[in-house]
Design a protein around this nucleic acid. Structure first.
Lengths: 210, 210
DNA sequence: GCGGTTCTGGACCGGTTCGTCAAGAACCAA
DNA sequence: TTGGTTCTTGACGAACCGGTCCAGAACCGC
């Protein structure tokens, strides 16, 4: 009935992601994406609309990937929930430090660049952070059920604090903080988490965590 | 001897900062800065060299301003050091939430956009975060001297953790997290700080903080 | 006033940008 | 084979980019 596509849409999306990731939205040119994929510009525009729509496709897929990856990191039985949380915090610090090219996180980069003026990006970004917070809260609740985290602490507030620390590690890594510093932040954050329920006579000291 | 400048250099730097802050480095055009200041492009280039040099002037001044502002927030007598730290954390959350235009922090934005490919920006950014960490550590040490923070905790590690939380609050604020969430993160972070030295028989539980 | 120096404004340059378009190629149902 | 549909390619257009240049204006020591 009609001529079929000759290119793999996912390959184009990956190439576009590399460009946006490396030099940002404003710094990326459609010609560079065309050159990287070998496609003519007509095919690019025909398949994806325009630069902004192409970016949203890339950004949305990236956000989905992150949420899924974090979900896999944190999903599991209650008795290992705290250990999964610790491992996740350490992994974020380790991955950030291992990113010698200092590419950082596309979500962070594009949220910083575009969220002020681009409602679609802002909405996707906010939703992604909400989902990440939920994944953390779910794991923290599991750890509380198993008695590894003080049940008096609000799991959502704790989750948002952990989320803030993780995003802070990302930001500091981008600035060039070294591996030792990033890992120390991760360890300090882990050490500071409210442990098992303290003896009753001591509970009061934790009251402000609700 | 020669014709004097007709423009105020600081006004130009402020106008340029607004542009970079709003649309980033790649998104800013020299024509826009010229239009915003009423200057001809010849004057702009004559006074500042080129776009990159102008940006570095703006970025450097912004970093200096931040470091000074945080230093003022945290400087003071030992007996109020913890309260100053608490107030600072709360202020960052409040300011981030009050930033309804969602402009965020220029340091965070440009570090995300440029640090990967621009060594000058990366160096200034890293130095700025180091100075912010030092200011926090100095205040934490003061609070420890006064007995308001566990003297067994490493002040630099604690400072870097607080710094990460603050940068995380900034990142989440940019994504659109609401005021209540940001303030809750601040309060949770404050609540989680290791308080006064616990009784000797309890000290062991804090050991991992060193 | 005059001369030398610096500053100003904006026309201009070469290159780049996003997006379009037309001419042809590839496919498949009939 | 043929005709209709969609895909591919890259030249093209109009606007825009960073940066230069120059003619003229403003200043000051003399």
């Amino acid at each position: 009935m009609a001529r079929p596509r000759e290119f793999d849409e996912n390959k184009v999306l990956r190439a576009a992601r590399e460009q946006f990731w490396s030099v940002g939205y404003a710094g990326t040119t459609m010609d560079a994406i065309a050159a990287a994929t070998g496609l003519g510009k007509g095919s690019l525009y025909g398949a994806f609309g325009d630069k902004h729509q192409l970016f949203l496709r890339v950004f949305d897929a990236y956000c989905t990937d992150i949420v899924n990856a974090v979900g896999r990191d944190l999903d599991g039985p209650d008795d290992q929930a705290l250990e999964r949380l610790r491992a996740h915090i350490r992994a974020v610090a380790a991955n950030t430090a291992a990113d010698t090219a200092r590419r950082g996180c596309l979500l962070a980069k594009e949220t910083a660049e575009l969220s002020e003026h681009d409602a679609a990006v802002a909405a996707r970004s906010l939703r992604t952070f909400d989902l990440l917070g939920e994944a953390l809260a779910t794991d923290i609740q599991a750890a509380q059920r198993h008695g590894d985290i003080d049940p008096a602490a609000d799991p959502h507030e704790l989750a948002n604090l952990v989320l803030a620390v993780l995003r802070g590690i990302e930001a500091l890594g981008k600035a060039g903080k070294n591996q030792a510093t990033l890992q120390a932040i991760a360890e300090t954050a882990i050490a500071v988490l409210p442990g098992p329920a303290p003896p009753a006579r001591k509970r009061q000291r934790r009251r402000s965590l609700r």
